[in-house]
């Protein structure tokens, strides 16, 4: 059963990568990368149980922390940039 769940997660990661490459706007790409990161955490946890090595859960926890900080930083960067562009348009 763990192997089925990990295959489902892997397929979803591939679909998210396709969306990240296709995505018409930058926000589509950020959304796809966010989905990819969340699925990585899920995959690490499932693999920890698949191979019977619960140490992998620490890696999953660390990856969850890194992922959310990265997404928020990227969003802040793009929001700032689009605001500056709007300001430049108004000038």
């Amino acid at each position: 059963m763990y192997i089925l769940v990990s295959i489902a997660i892997l397929v979803t990661m591939v679909l998210a990568l396709v969306r990240a490459l296709l995505g018409p706007t930058v926000y589509d790409r950020v959304l796809a990368v966010n989905v990819f990161g969340t699925k990585t955490v899920l995959l690490l946890s499932v693999i920890a149980f698949l191979y019977g090595r619960p140490d992998f859960l620490d890696l999953a926890l660390a990856y969850a922390l890194i992922n959310v900080v990265g997404i928020l930083a990227v969003l802040e960067f793009f929001q700032d940039r689009s605001r500056k562009q709007q300001g430049a348009d108004n000038d």
Binding site: N34, L57, L61, A64, L75
Partner: peptide
């Protein structure tokens, strides 16, 4: 450990999605 990861994902996932939608709307 699983409970901690789950709680963290459940707190941060919707926050990141909200920030994303907010950034897209503001742009």
């Amino acid at each position: 450990k699983l409970f901690a990861i789950m709680l963290f994902l459940l707190l941060t996932g919707p926050t990141a999605t909200y920030a994303l939608a907010n950034a897209a709307l503001l742009s």
